[in-house]
Design a binder for these strands. Structure first.
Lengths: 201, 201
DNA sequence: GCTATCGCATGATGATCATCATGTCAAAGA
DNA sequence: TCTTTGACATGATGATCATCATGCGATAGC
């Protein structure tokens, strides 16, 4: 690859990094092309050499951010039961540190309510990333999971995302911490409700 | 009350209604004073006779919206167990209709991720309203609930909010519907995990 | 070495928006 | 009836922002 091409590739990488941080910290609108480019060490004019418009950047930054999120959250495969896995990953996700670190936190949670207002291309991207995260959680393609496990995984993700979002939306740290704890406990229980009870729902 | 005062009161009411709709449909920034005032049948200049700035409007609209939300969601007291109540209210909350009606839907869910980016006055208001909703759910002051019930209520609200938000963020209607169903099932189970299991957590 | 290319910078442009200044007119109070 | 008040309208003002036009300078291919 020519040196110019690698330069451009590196610039693009830095832009996506900066955009990912801004996206999670400031939301979809809170980005600002000039601010992102400046954080990437460039000026606003260079933007259109990399992306055709802001929406395209936003989608790419979302993908980029969630790949990082999944790598850090899911880590390497473990020897554990489904129930253990749900409990362990919930405790790893619902921490005070995750709540407070905005710039590199889970983009699904950081954007959950704003995503609904995005255009359909953005929502398609969001959905794809959610499905990838579900597959990572299940350690296999989400579409091939047995129905009950798929439903568990969906409710589980909704609980994690909702808990983290609420814990940030709230003003008092004490309530935020209690939310995290209550959410993690409930998430750990999603895997093992009494089976006979679940059969005749 | 003088006729002028009632006029003003009615104007204020219409502004709050319009702002509540815009808040839930377009988010905190998506409001736009001119648009809100025009929907209230006034022009933008009249705004500052009612509120000192946009932030104040936003907070008041949030309170107004959530009062309506609670009235419609919780309805009249019922003769039912805690478990039954959680199941019934989850099914009432997590419907396709609620997902699609943006303008008058639950403001807690509509703003859950953006609220984190609001100023501290906004987050205080959000927290107060969340606590009122929790009290309504518990049919008594949230602060006086037994710890386990309080934790259940917190996780339950997080699950409802997260499920509704995700179901809107996603592009495909089928996945959205499945999320609602899985969320409602899981929410109904929050109340009755095996007690001995819960005791030695 | 010469020239074309292209990544990037600088500086418009036009749109949107919150807020303010000023004017108007009807109702309140004397 | 006359004056004052205040709810509302109209029309700036300045800030922010996405997008575009233009120019530069280094690199790549000849």
């Amino acid at each position: 690859m020519s040196s110019r091409a690698t330069q451009k590739q590196q610039s693009r990488e830095r832009i996506l990094e900066a955009a990912g941080r801004h996206l999670r910290t400031g939301g979809i609108d809170g980005a600002g092309i000039a601010a992102v480019m400046s954080e990437a060490g460039l000026t606003h004019g260079a933007f259109y050499a990399h992306f055709s418009n802001k929406d395209e950047l936003t989608r790419n930054a979302l993908v980029h951010a969630l790949e990082q999120n999944r790598a850090r959250w899911l880590g390497k495969p473990q020897r554990e039961s489904w129930t253990q896995r749900l409990g362990r990953l919930a405790r790893r996700y619902l921490t005070g540190a995750h709540r407070q670190s905005r710039a590199d936190s889970c983009a699904l949670a950081a954007l959950c309510s704003e995503a609904a207002r995005g255009d359909s291309a953005f929502r398609r991207t969001y959905e794809e990333e959610l499905l990838k995260s579900l597959s990572g959680l299940c350690e296999g393609p989400f579409e091939t999971q047995p129905p009950q496990r798929g439903d568990d995984a969906l409710a589980y993700m909704a609980l994690l995302v909702g808990t983290l979002a609420l814990s940030r939306a709230v003003a008092s740290p004490a309530l935020a911490e209690r939310l995290l704890k209550a959410g993690a406990d409930a998430a750990a229980r999603i895997g093992h409700a009494d089976p006979e009870q679940r059969a005749n729902r």
